[in-house]
Simulated assay, not measured.
Amino acid sequence: MTGGRDKIKIGIDAKWYFEGPPSGHVVVRNLVNNVLANPLGFDIYLILNSKDKQLARETFDKSVKLIFLPGLPNLLLNMLALPLAARRYKLDIVVYQNFGSFWPAKLFKVAYIHDVLFLDMPKYYTRGERFYFKKMTSLARAANMIITISNHEKRRIVDHQIAAEGDVKVVHHGVDENFKPLSDYPEAEVKEVEERYRLPAQYILYVGRVNVRKNISKLITAMPLIKSKIQMLIVGERGAETSVLQRQIAELDLNNRVIFTGHVPLADLYIIYARATVFCFPSFAEGFGLPPLEAMKCGVPVVVSNRTAMPEVCGDAAVYINPDEPVHIALKISELLGDRIYYAQKVAAGLKHVKQFTWQRAANLLLTLIAEAYAYRKHHS
């Protein structure tokens, strides 16, 4: 990929490409791959951590332009080092992850804000997290444009007067093409994963972080109320909440029905999704909520909370629950398990619905929105 001088130079904050917050890592990796595949006339520069220099040179084609920043906390890098790099490489535009910068003045600054849930739901965040994230909102006010991940988050950003409505654009996430129904995987691979994790014949699946906001506790409380002795698999990095949940499981005598896998490699996760009987995501709050779409793409019916962005993301394809009510959670899961026709309808609805969420579409829309906003600014400056 070669860039001429007539092309607009855009730097993309890709520091989470190789590692970072789980959801941020997924988003950045997929957006970057698809932006590079179709740059829409931009001259693309990837901004990365210097510790990933060797890995980046092995991963990306030699024609991809790479900028490496020193090992500092993300906030400081974006406020100080990244603007200096933008000036050095004469970038026209920079897309920042969450934390932007006040300068350089001529630089067109795009803040890609994943969510600002902490503003309305501080109880789900530590004091340190709230202090850290607060910097995001002040820096975002200096951005020329904000990209966020759902209309629900856009409304939150506007309501908190972080930016005017016209300056906030929505780009929904896509779903990795490697998620697919069970029948699309080789039997030998499926069997290997089944044996590695001792997967039950049938299970309710949860995938995501293990913390209070995800509301796994209410799902566990619902387990004895489900009209089936189905088991449950909790897939996600173990956190402080894990020990609390394990005590709850013991108290409810569910040790033989609830399995924690911890973090699993992506190749295994595809099959764990596809092997599930039902996917349940009872989260209290999400800026987007990608796991339900991943489950839909695997042909698994989805039960999700009726809160925040999830109705926007899942549409009519999901079964909705009140996340505060374990009885309601159990009822909706039982209805799916007990009615083959209803179950098949939700599988079909999910497979159809998820087709609109692709990373190529997300990447193309991201670049198109930026190009339009940049052209408007140039024309009116």
Rank of each mutant, 00 (worst) to 15 (best):
D184V: 09
Q248Y: 01
V175Q: 13
E312L: 03
E237T: 13
D184I: 03
L366Q: 03
I234M: 01
S217V: 07
Y124N: 00
K180N: 06
Y45P: 15
H172G: 07
F279N: 08
I146V: 12
I204H: 04
D61N: 14
V170I: 05
E372V: 01
T277W: 10
L77A: 11
V319M: 12
Q161T: 12
H380T: 15
D6L: 14
L69D: 12
E19F: 12
A56H: 02
R87Y: 09
A222C: 06
L84H: 09
L76F: 15
V175E: 13
S23E: 05
E325A: 14
L293V: 14
A85Y: 03
D176V: 03
A363Q: 04
A14D: 13
I259M: 11
A56R: 05
M296S: 00
S243N: 12
V258A: 01
Y376E: 15
L269T: 03
F102Q: 06
G236C: 05
E237W: 08
M79K: 11
Y45T: 11
V95R: 13
P323L: 00
H172Q: 11
V300A: 13
K355L: 08
N144E: 15
P291Q: 07
V190I: 15
G41A: 02
G41R: 13
N34R: 09
I113R: 05
L365A: 04
G208Q: 03
S305M: 05
F99T: 00
N98L: 05
F118D: 05
K332H: 08
I333N: 02
V110A: 05
A142G: 02
N38E: 10
D120R: 06
A318M: 04
A81N: 10
